[in-house]
């Protein structure tokens, strides 16, 4: 059973369809809200990429991979939002004061392709900055990566379904690995608090809150089409707005906090071992 689970999971990640049904008509405000938010997200991710690449030089060698991952995550997200934004513009044409479907599909598959790469990396980045013992980190990284893939896979069928029951069923199943990830990170971050320097402890507490707030936003966004009616204009707009806001906080915001934690830990390491000072600047 266990041998079949991982190949089945990988198959679903690769071949799951994510063609999203889009409403046939949007008001100018609805179209503009999503379009502007996509633009803000592209700018946020792009600016974060530059910040993380430049900031990496200020960190100790063992924290640099976490920053490298942050930079990759926001660079990939920036590109995907560029593609999603382009698809959104092509999917609608302005006719008689409203935006009507142009006939070209709104390809939201980039959002899911993005998550296959970025969600496991975000988790690994958090574990890397904790600097846990290698045997603890190894097991945790493996479990979190599998849980992240399971969460994305189980979310697919509900996301592309127009049926409320199907959406709720797969949404609930997807919530199981989601809760496991949040619980594991929350508990591990809590356990590592005592071993951290005082300045880092405050940042770690903020990281836990940010993790809870940003990741908690995704299921809320997922449920938006149910609140406003399956694939009504309001439902799809709320979904896109929710996911974009959550992505900005979970990727750019989370990465920024990881940077400041790594910076404080580098300073603490250097104070403990003055010989490391030259290494951190390399």
């Amino acid at each position: 059973m266990k041998k079949l689970f991982v190949p089945a999971l990988l198959g679903a990640v690769l071949f799951g369809s994510a063609a999203l049904a889009a409403p046939t008509e949007l008001s100018s405000g609805q179209f503009g809200l999503v379009y502007q938010l996509f633009s803000i997200t592209i700018a946020t991710m792009g600016a974060s990429f530059i910040f993380f690449v430049l900031g990496k030089q200020n960190l100790g060698v063992k924290y640099q991979p976490a920053m490298l991952v942050s930079a990759l995550v926001v660079a990939v997200a920036c590109y995907h939002y560029f593609r999603i934004s382009g698809s959104w513009s092509e999917a609608y044409t302005f006719v008689d004061g409203v935006y009507k479907a142009s006939g070209l599909p709104f390809n939201d598959a980039y959002r899911y392709a993005d998550w296959v790469l970025t969600v496991p990396l975000l988790l690994v980045e958090a574990v890397a900055v904790l600097a846990l013992a290698s045997n603890v980190a190894s097991g945790m990284i493996g479990r979190l990566v599998v849980a992240a893939l399971a969460m994305i896979v189980l979310g697919y069928p509900g996301e592309i379904s127009l049926d409320t029951g199907t959406r709720l069923l797969w949404g609930t199943l997807s919530t199981i690995p989601f809760v496991y990830i949040i619980y594991t990170l929350f508990v591990e971050l809590g356990k590592s608090l005592d071993r951290q320097p005082p300045r880092v402890q405050l940042l770690m507490k903020n990281l836990r809150l940010l993790l809870f707030a940003s990741w908690g936003f995704y299921p809320i966004a997922y449920l938006m089409p149910l609140v406003f009616g399956s694939f009504s204009a309001d439902g799809v707009v709320a979904l896109q707005v929710g996911y974009s806001l959550a992505d900005m906080i979970a990727k750019a915001g989370f990465g920024t906090l990881i940077y400041f934690i790594a910076l404080e830990k580098t300073k603490a390491d250097n104070e403990a071992k003055p010989g490391n000072l030259a290494m951190a600047g390399d």
Binding site: L68, V116, L117, L121, V124
Partner: peptide, 13 residues
Amino acid sequence: MLMIVAYVYTVSN
């Protein structure tokens, strides 16, 4: 993703 995870794990250790 698998390559980057392996890289981060190796370098962090």
